[in-house]
């Protein structure tokens, strides 16, 4: 495995008596999308702000491509692109001005191609206050990428975006990953993390409580697969039905719902049962546990 591009070791940060980040450590490999997951107040933004040199850690060591954010702020800001959760631009600054302004401070030529790619071509002359939330976030992303940083840090990247904008942003994030850019994102959107992240760390009350790929994390949970079936004669809707592998079952809106520890065995038994009763399947769904379910499981365990 290559040298990680982001290394965080024993990071601790408190605000007065409140311990926001408690001795956390993680590494991010080059070219991956790494997600910091957690509920509000878990310490995600504080962690990112320490990495972005917006806050001084109380303890711990951070290295971003070998750069210490505490000592080499200028080098850091030329190495990372940052899309903050809450930030802004002057109300009267136009999209084109913003690109020229930030590019000038990074010592690079303005990247108008990024504005085109992010659907801001027609808005080059529009002032910041006249842009919708979605367009403002796209502009923030274009500005974060203007100096072609190898690392992109995104805090709640899709917050406030409508569905088409989210899909577009996810496509762009995939493109960036393909081009070799490492992305570190903080999100409380489990579906987003499961879809986008190569690896995630779950933060709870300032501590990392689980790390791994979304698949590893979900597999480490109860490992029950959800099977939902609807048939024309409703032959499965019997309270006394007992099929192999099923741990628990219920009925809802003419659907038979069960959770199985052996999905192959259970499906085979369901299909045989339906065929024996000359019934026919209308709808059949097999769902592995989602990251969200696993997240809830972990957070409930830890809180208890």
């Amino acid at each position: 495995m290559s040298e990680p591009v982001i290394k965080v070791l024993g990071l601790t940060k408190s605000y007065g008596e409140f311990l926001a980040v408690d001795d956390i450590s993680f590494e991010v490999q080059a070219g991956e999308i790494f997600g910091l997951l957690g509920p509000n107040g878990a310490g995600k933004t504080t962690t990112l702000e320490c990495l972005e040199a917006l806050r001084l850690p109380d303890k711990g060591d951070i290295r971003i491509m070998g750069i210490d954010p505490v000592r080499s702020v200028r080098r850091l800001h030329n190495t990372i692109g940052v899309q903050l959760q809450t930030s802004g631009l002057p109300a009267s600054m136009t999209v084109g001005e913003a690109m020229r302004f930030f590019a000038a401070y990074h010592g690079v030529a303005p990247r108008y191609d990024l504005l085109d790619r992010l659907g801001l071509k027609e808005k080059v002359g529009a002032q910041y206050h006249a842009l919708s939330t979605g367009l403002q976030r796209r502009l923030a992303l274009a500005l974060a990428l203007a100096h072609q940083p190898p690392i992109l840090v995104m805090d709640e990247p899709t917050a406030g975006l409508d569905v088409p904008s989210r899909v577009e942003l996810h496509e762009l994030m995939n493109e960036l990953r393909s081009s070799g850019i490492t992305i570190l994102m903080a999100t409380h959107d489990m579906a987003e993390a499961e879809k986008m992240a190569d690896r995630v760390a779950i933060l709870l009350r300032g501590k990392i409580v689980a790390t791994g790929t979304p698949r590893e994390l979900t597999a480490a949970g109860s490992a029950l697969t959800k099977v939902t079936v609807s048939t024309s004669k409703k032959s499965l809707l019997l309270p006394e039905l007992a099929l192999p592998g099923i741990q628990r079952q219920s009925q809802q809106d003419e659907y038979f719902i069960c959770f199985t520890s052996d999905v192959g065995l259970t499906l085979k038994a369901i299909l045989a049962y339906i065929e024996e009763r000359d019934d026919a399947i209308i709808d059949l769904r097999v769902e592995r546990p989602s990251l969200e379910e696993r997240f809830l499981e972990i957070t409930t365990e830890k809180v208890e």
Binding site: E52, A53, L54, V73, R74, H77, N78, V82, L84, T86, S87, G88, L89, P90, F102, Y105, H106, A140, L143
Partner: peptide
């Protein structure tokens, strides 16, 4: 108050 300086800071201004 609007976080404009935060944007400036993370861009090395």
């Amino acid at each position: 108050e609007a976080g404009i300086f935060r944007s400036y800071r993370v861009n090395g201004i």
